[in-house]
Design a protein around this nucleic acid. Structure first.
Lengths: 199, 199
DNA sequence: ACCTGAACACCGTTCAAGT
DNA sequence: ACCTGAACACCGTTCAAGT
C-alpha cells in the first residue's frame, strides 16, 4: 500500500499502525472536505491523540504528500503501460484523462501537491519527477507523429488539468470538466490536419 | 466608484463611509492574502469594530461580491468597446487576456466569485450576466468568421482562464500563465486553417 | 439605523509528562 | 522512539448594550 523506500513510515510496529490509520482517516477526510480537512477530526477518526498526528506529520504538507505519493506512482505506472501503444495520440489523451480522474477523486489535492515546488531529492520530488518522465515519453511519441505541437511542454498541460479541477470545485455546473478537457486537448494538437497520419 | 443601483451601499452618511473604508481595506487584504483574508484585520485597518463589518457584509461571500462587482462591470465595458473591432478573433483574444490580467490582480478571487452560482436577480448575478452577454458578442463574431469553433461556449473558456489563475497561485513557476493561455486559445480555434480569412 | 466590543466557539499547534 | 492531552493562540461569529 505505502512505499517503504519513499515514505517516512516508522519502524516500530505500534507507530506504523498509527501512521497507517492516520493516512486512512486523512484520505477519507480529503475525499469529503478537500483541502479544508480538520486535523482534530482525523486524529479522532484514527483513534490517536492529536500530538501523534503532529508527530508523524509535522506540517499539513507532509500529510498531503504522504497521501498522494501512491497516486503519483500509479500514474507513472499507467504511463509506462501506455508507452508502447500503437496509437501515441490516443495513449497520451488516455493518460491525461487519468490525471483528471485521479484528481477528481482526491478533490484535486493530489494534482495540487504535485504542482508545488519540492526540495531536491525529497520523496515527493523524486516521485513527481518519475511520473513526469514517464508522461514525457507519451508526449514525445505523440509529437513524433506530428499530431501534437512540438512546443508543448508536459508540465503546462498537467497544470491546465489541475486548473480544470480547481475551477470546477465550486462551479454551478459540476460536469463541466470534460468539455474543458477537450479544449485543452484541441489546444495541444497541430492545427494543420494534413500533419495527422491517415485514419 | 461603487454602483449605487447594484450594491447595497447604506444611505446614512457615517454608515456609507464605514462601508467604503471596509471595501478599501478588504481589497488591499485580498490583493496580498487572496482568499485567506482575516476579517479582524480588515475591520481594524478600516478603523471600525468587527461587528460593523458583519453588519455590512453578513457573510464572506457578500464581501467578495461587493469587491468584484466593479471589476465585472469594467470587463463588460471593455467587451462592448471591442465589439466593433475589424478583427473579431483579435478582439476576443484581447478580451480573454484582460480576464486573465484582472484575475491576477485580485488573486483570482474576482473570477472565482463570478464562477459561482448566484441567486436570480441578485446584483452579482445580473452583473455577471451582463458581462457574459457582452463577451458572447465577441465570441459569436469570431465564430462567424470561421476562426473559432462553433461549439465553443464562453463560460467554459472563462472557467479555463479561472483554472489557469488558480493553478498558478502556488506554482513553482509564476510566469506560467501565458503559455497555458496560448494553449486554450489554440484549443478554441478551428483546426483547419483553410477556414481562416486571408492574412 | 447603525456601531461597539465582549463573549463564546472552533480549530491549529506546542510541549511537558508519560510509556 | 513514540504517545498523550492539557494549554495556549488565533480567528470566526453572535449579540446585548449603546448612540
Amino acid at each position: 500500500m505505502t512505499h517503504p523506500e519513499l515514505s517516512s513510515r516508522p519502524r516500530r510496529a505500534d507507530a506504523r499502525r498509527n501512521y497507517d490509520k492516520l493516512l486512512v482517516a486523512a484520505r477519507a477526510a480529503v475525499d469529503t472536505r478537500g483541502r479544508d480537512i480538520i486535523l482534530d477530526d482525523i486524529a479522532r477518526q484514527a483513534g490517536v491523540a492529536i500530538g501523534t498526528l503532529y508527530n508523524h506529520f509535522p506540517t499539513r504538507q507532509d500529510l498531503f504528500q504522504a497521501l498522494f505519493l501512491n497516486e503519483a506512482e500509479e500514474l507513472r505506472l499507467r504511463a509506462e503501460e501506455l508507452a508502447d501503444s500503437p496509437a501515441p495520440l490516443d495513449a497520451l489523451i488516455t493518460w491525461l484523462r487519468l490525471q483528471l480522474d485521479y484528481g477528481a477523486r482526491g478533490r484535486s489535492m493530489g494534482a495540487a501537491v504535485m504542482n508545488m515546488r519540492h526540495a531536491d531529492g525529497s520523496p515527493v520530488q523524486r516521485t513527481h519527477a518519475a511520473m513526469h518522465e514517464a508522461g514525457t515519453v507519451l508526449l514525445r511519441r505523440a509529437q513524433a507523429t506530428g499530431e501534437v505541437r512540438a512546443d508543448v511542454e508536459l508540465h503546462r498541460v498537467l497544470r491546465l488539468i489541475l486548473g480544470i479541477l480547481l475551477a470546477n470545485e465550486d462551479a454551478p455546473d459540476p460536469d463541466g470538466a470534460q468539455p474543458m478537457f477537450d479544449i485543452v486537448i484541441a489546444g495541444i494538437r497541430t492545427r494543420d490536419p494534413s500533419q495527422d497520419p491517415p485514419a
